[in-house]
Simulated assay, not measured.
Amino acid sequence: MKVILINNEHSGARFLELGRKTRAVLSLCFLGVPLSMLGLGYFVAQLAPTSMQRDINLGAMQDELEQQSEAVADLRAASQRKLQALTRSAAELEASLVRLDALGQRLTDLAGLEQGEFDFGSKPALGGPLLRNDEGTALRYDLGTELKALEQRVLDREQQLEILQSLLLNRQFADDIYLSGRPIKKGWMSSAFGSRTDPFTGRNAWHGGVDFAGKDGSDIVVVAAGVVTWSGERSGYGDMVEVNHGSGYSTRYAHNKTNLVEVGDLVKKGEVIAAMGSSGRSTGPHVHYEVYKHGRPVDPASYIHRSRR
């Protein structure tokens, strides 16, 4: 292959003879460079979408991680609030338990019960097998377990208090219907039960009660709880009040100035039921007090001075 070189200054030309290897190298240069550029462009074009897709995937993963981080933060805050609420509940239960223990101990002391019959100073006796989860391992202690234990202690104290209340109410009821004491707040015994000289005839006569003298209009009180079965005038008694106490007992309060209760009224022990006077067959202000047991008069003195053990 010949190459002609022209020189403008000398208007001459030169001829170059190219060999086969030289022609091959020149052909490779002229053809290889464009092909290489074309291949590089294609590679760059293929690589650009892959890089963009990778950037998009990385951005999506970062957004998801941020959302998960926010969810974990919200869960942690909610757990903290729940823990605080459970802690407050535990503190309130503990405070209630302390008050119940103090009240129960006070009532036990007031009732004169033996120590140990009602125990408000120790935890209730509990038991049972060790609980295990599905994997066979023991369940871990948590605040919820402590709350359940406190609730159990409060329930135990409430049950003891209910029994103690019932016991005290029964004892109070028994005390209320127990005949004892005098039917007056102020005064003195002026006549005893049994045989005596009648103040009107001067003869020996039977006196079926005891007399308590005092100031006109002073209080007359019932010696035990019961139901009023008579309130009004009765021959020889003047204005009289009769109270039925159950178990076969009844009492009478006679010669009253004024009756303050009516038939059917429920009266408590020590309640004022009348004012002292001198109505009926009487020589002066006093109360004639009688006690009946199963319909028969008995000496009130044995009930006036007795006390419940």
Rank of each mutant, 00 (worst) to 15 (best):
K2Q: 09
K2A: 08
E9Q: 14
S11I: 10
G12M: 07
A13L: 05
L16Q: 11
E17C: 02
L18K: 04
G19K: 04
G19P: 07
K21T: 09
R23F: 07
V25C: 01
C29N: 09
P34F: 13
P34W: 09
M37I: 13
L38H: 14
G41P: 05
F43E: 14
V44D: 10
V44L: 15
V44Y: 12
A45N: 08
A45Y: 11
A45I: 03
L47T: 08
A48I: 14
A48Q: 15
T50L: 14
S51C: 02
R54Y: 15
R54Q: 15
D55C: 06
D55A: 15
G59H: 13
M61F: 13
E64I: 11
Q67N: 12
Q67L: 13
Q67G: 12
S69R: 15
A73R: 12
R76I: 08
Q80R: 08
Q80K: 09
R81D: 14
K82D: 10
L83G: 07
L83E: 10
L86G: 01
E92C: 01
L97A: 10
D101I: 00
A102W: 03
D109T: 15
L113E: 13
E117P: 01
D119A: 14
P124N: 08
G127L: 10
P129H: 07
L130Q: 04
L130E: 02
L131W: 01
L139E: 00
G144S: 09
L147K: 01
L147C: 01
K148I: 00
A149P: 00
A149R: 05
E151S: 13
E151V: 05
Q152C: 01
V154W: 00
D156P: 03
D156I: 01
R157I: 00
L161S: 04
Q165H: 14
Q165E: 13
L168N: 08
N170R: 14
D176N: 14
D176T: 06
P183S: 09
I184P: 01
K185E: 10
M189G: 05
S191Y: 02
S191H: 04
G194N: 09
G194M: 03
S195G: 04
S195I: 08
D198S: 13
P199H: 12
F200S: 08
T201I: 12
G202C: 10
G202I: 05
R203F: 11
N204K: 12
A205W: 04
A205I: 09
V210L: 05
D211N: 11
A213C: 06
A213L: 05
G214Q: 06
K215Q: 12
I220G: 01
V221T: 10
V222A: 02
G226E: 00
V228G: 06
V228Y: 04
T229W: 04
G232R: 05
S235R: 13
G236T: 04
M240I: 08
S247R: 13
S250H: 01
R252F: 02
Y253W: 04
N256S: 13
K257L: 13
E262D: 11
G264V: 14
G264S: 12
L266A: 10
K269D: 06
V272A: 04
I273M: 00
A275N: 10
M276V: 03
G280E: 02
R281C: 02
H286L: 03
V291C: 11
R296Y: 07
V298T: 12
V298I: 15
S302G: 03
Y303W: 07
Y303T: 01
I304R: 06
I304C: 02
I304A: 06
R306E: 08
R306P: 08
R308F: 11
